[in-house]
Nucleic acid binder design. Sequence first.
DNA 1: GCCGTTTTCGGCCCGACTGTTTTCAGTCG
Length: 589
Amino acid sequence: MTSFSNQDIADVLNKVAIVYQLQNENRFKIIAYQQAAEVVSTCTQSIYDLWKEGNMQDINGIGTTIANHLQEYFTNKESSYFWKTIAQVPQSVFLLVNIPGIGPKRAYKLVTHLHLDNPTTALADLQTAIENNEMSQMEGFGEKSQQQLLENLELYTKQSSAEKRMILPFAQKVAHQLLQYLTLHPQVIQCEPLGSLRRHIETIGDIDIVLVADEKYFSTIIDYIAVYPSCLRVDNKGSKKISIIVAPHIRVDIRLTTLKTYGTMLQYFTGSKMHNIRLREYAQKKNLSLSEYGITDKKTGIQHTFEKEELLYSFLKLEYISPLLREGTDEITRAQEHTLPTLVSLKDIRGDLHVHSNFPIQTSHDVGANSFTTLLNKAKQLGYTYIGFTEHNPRSKESANQVISLLQKRRLQAQRELTNTPITYFLGLEVDIRPDGTLALYDEAIEQLDYVIVSIHSSFRMDQKSATARVLKALSYPKVRIFGHPTGRKIGERDGLSLDWKQIFPLCRKRNIALEINAWPQRLDLPDVLVRQAIQAGVRCIINTDTHALIDMDNMHYGITVAQRGWCEKKNIVNTLPENEFRRWILNK
DNA sequence: GCCGTTTTCGGCCCGACTGTTTTCAGTCG
Ligand SMILES: Nc1nc2c(ncn2[C@H]2C[C@H](O)[C@@H](COP(=O)(O)OP(=O)(O)OP(=O)(O)O)O2)c(=O)[nH]1
Ligand SMILES: [Mg+2]
Ligand SMILES: [Mg+2]
Ligand SMILES: [Zn+2]
């Protein structure tokens, strides 16, 4: 049986958009296809499954035409309209458009003039053709174009094997280093990372930075940026912005602004793109035109400038929208109604319930590096009032009696070590969910615990139906209070399980089980979009660091931003509860 | 092609940078 992943479908829609661009189709039609592709690729449900259930058009951006064409593509792929449309163009075109600076028109020109017919060798063939100077008589490609293309092509082939977005902490580090260089310049008043960095997206495509200075210094500052020591290449350089490449896969966009227009520039360059478009459309309806330079009254032509973002939003009669909510969903409507959530914040957190100590638990997984005392002191230092120790379950060859005695020993050791402490501690375990949904811990051993985190560490290749059954079974065990890193994804490494949340959420709600927001930067699991769906379904979350070494406990803020991007208020997060209420929840009393 | 808290028709964000363009198309943010 064939299946179509969301990425497959998005690729098809993008290719159709490319063909339409070559055919000079209506530009709004092209945008509609690009928009549909974007929506499909970021959708948390399988579009193919939605189609099978007859609900594909519930997706905003997929209307009757695209839905019908997709239906045909699903059922009769090779005779479908989309298939034939895509086949109208040499397939190498779809490869070349991935090179920066090359869009559909230029890609098509290159493929046809240079006969890059074989898609598997097209990139290499292109390089040879440029080097052999075969491009010189091509219209629209002068000396400079050729040189640029060659450089971009080289960088692209270097990175395309590892074509990856950066994980957040790495991007933050790169940005920080550059900011240090930028602030050294005496005329630079201020600079700040914007774009996806300011919105705290889990992965970062490029580094976007705004820089404030007096306009008369713009050009000297731009020259200064161009000689940044780790700059491999200047991609473009004008009077208001410069883009540099600092590693084959790392691009930096820098926008310069004056203090007077700082607020509007901040708004523009923070994005997201969809949020910007929605906000600009909203302004249009008020007969206003919004750009990074200000808000222009279209009737009078008067432009209002804003030093502060807050004033811009309030000028538009909107509640201030946190950057973490600016994804172009329904935040503008909610800002109009003044019903945006009061987002949970780091200072609301009172405990960390997924911490691995170095107690020798005889597990096949990793043990923690630190003692109960060290970890508890760190919790105290972070201002927490409770902590939960959750080593991995002991390996399967240990007998029930051995496991029970290990757990008793652990409790005794904790009691001995942690006397007279102002912090409450709970003793749990992180228990594997086996492929059949049973837990990797004896029932009698569960009785020794205050609580159980269940989580999946292996066997991720499972269809949605069996994966969901697996999880539902695990969540039905006694003392299960937390579903740890629920999808099991590792960013940049593997996708998580595909689960039917319509079944998982209600069970969590009924049993009052919290979904973990795992704050480990490579996990950030539950992902933000699903967090929002979870709390809308009445499920609470818990933000944990999954600490294995002391310093990991400082990762809590990564989980907080996921919760914020998932529209969480304090009440949606159980580890914001005061100790007495939290105790009742975790002990299920 | 999509969409609707005044619309099922008539709109659809707005601007920077590059090249060989003498007035704008292509690409990107
Ligand atoms: N108004 C408007 N703004 C845009 C458009 N494209 C990008 N922007 C703004 C909003 C983006 O957040 C910001 C930076 O662009 P990027 O392409 O770097 O996107 P962003 O950083 O959001 O995501 P990324 O992680 O880089 O993929 O520029 C656009 O088409 N229109
Ligand atoms: Mg970016
Ligand atoms: Mg960018
Ligand atoms: Zn763990």
